[in-house]
């Protein structure tokens, strides 16, 4: 399959349209202690590989994490601010994942 067909953008588009919720499980996660430019204010933050329910993996930050997280935890896609682009302050939005409310 081509990259476009395999990419998570289809799921993202669905989430943006509000057509459906996108769920997945934590394939892996880490905490970024040495952030790149544009992410300094958020550090330390959690980055994850999420296995979407349709079988694809996606790289994204975790958000709204309250307490411990674990491998295999259920998460859902949400739209969040990723970073602020440059001094003019253009806000870049994208997808993050949050644990399902138990």
């Amino acid at each position: 399959m081509t990259r476009t067909q395999e990419s998570p953008s289809a799921s993202l588009d669905m989430a943006e349209r509000g057509a459906d919720r996108v769920y997945g499980t934590l394939y892996s996660y880490t905490t970024v202690q040495e952030p790149p430019v544009g992410f300094v204010g958020q550090a330390p933050y959690q980055l994850a590989l999420v296995g979407l329910d349709d079988g694809r993996l996606v790289t994204a930050q975790l958000t709204d994490v309250d307490g411990e997280i674990a491998m295999g935890e259920r998460v859902e896609m949400v739209t969040r601010k990723l970073t602020t682009d440059g001094e003019r302050g253009m806000i870049v939005y994208g997808y993050k994942f949050r644990p399902l409310i138990k």
Binding site: S7, P8, Y27, S28, Y29, T30, T31, V32, E34, P35, P36, G38, F39, Q42, Y45, L47, A48, L49, V58, T59, A60, Q61, M71, L82, T83, V92, G94, K96
Partner: peptide, 23 residues
Amino acid sequence: DYETVNGATMTAMAGLLMRRYMH
């Protein structure tokens, strides 16, 4: 487009790989 836009670094991607391996 798929990694660094989300705040990924080389070390963070290595961390993701290593935790999965350990698991």
